[in-house]
Design a binder for these strands. Structure first.
Lengths: 112, 112
DNA sequence: CGGCATACATAGATCACCTATGGGTAGGTG
DNA sequence: CACCTACCCATAGGTGATCTATGTATGCCG
């Protein structure tokens, strides 16, 4: 099946969204998912099967660091926070994304 | 290697860009590639290894139709044009894309 | 005590895209 | 003429992000 974009994020943007979310404060996976979903009014649905592997990749790359903690609701959860490299990467991805989206907008603009 | 976005289009947007280009008139693959590249001021580089398979997929899906012709420069080239289904699909993808980009912008907005 | 929301994790598959490579032609230039 | 560059098509092979599906476990509420 081709790309569906019904409940789905744009490939390549998940990492940026996660970095941005974590720039507001440390958070666990489930919380990240909820945050993105709520802010985007359910347009961006971050599937768990996408998010957890992404977090692991990002930890491997040194963009985030992780720590087991207990949530306010008394559950064990893995809290992630931005590293310095992660904060830098957020800036890079953000401007790169803006650049590409603007280029796409230019191409999509011609009236006829 | 992770996503590079140096010369590269956003995954999932190539089809939309091609549909838009063809909505301006029938064109061959090479011309489509040049058009997107020039309009985007070299930001969007459509690789041939991405484009030709994409055109074939789109033909299979009935979004475009193809015909061998001779270019003004006297070369044989495969001209593609939008079908009715393709024009409809362009509208769908365009609004879907706008919707997702706006959602991303909302998530990326919070100041701190 | 059954069900739901919370919370993490992985295997397997898919699919768009990239890299690399191949072939071929028209037109100009040394 | 030989060569080069721009034009034009095509495919094999690989990568990598994402999705689907599934599994585990716990706190809480009715």
């Amino acid at each position: 099946m081709p790309i569906d974009r019904k409940n789905e994020i744009l490939p390549g943007t998940l990492e940026m969204l996660v970095l941005k979310t974590l720039s507001l404060g440390a958070l666990h996976g489930y919380g990240i998912s909820q945050h993105i979903r709520q802010l985007s009014k359910d347009v961006l649905q971050v599937e768990e099967g996408s998010l957890y592997p992404a977090l692991q990749r990002m930890e491997l790359k040194g963009l985030v660091s992780a720590e087991w903690k207990i949530t306010p609701t008394k559950r064990r959860a893995r809290y992630y926070k931005l590293t310095a490299a992660g904060r830098k990467q957020l800036g890079i991805e953000q401007s790169s994304f803006a650049r590409v989206v603007e280029a796409i907008a230019t191409v999509m603009q011609p009236e006829s």
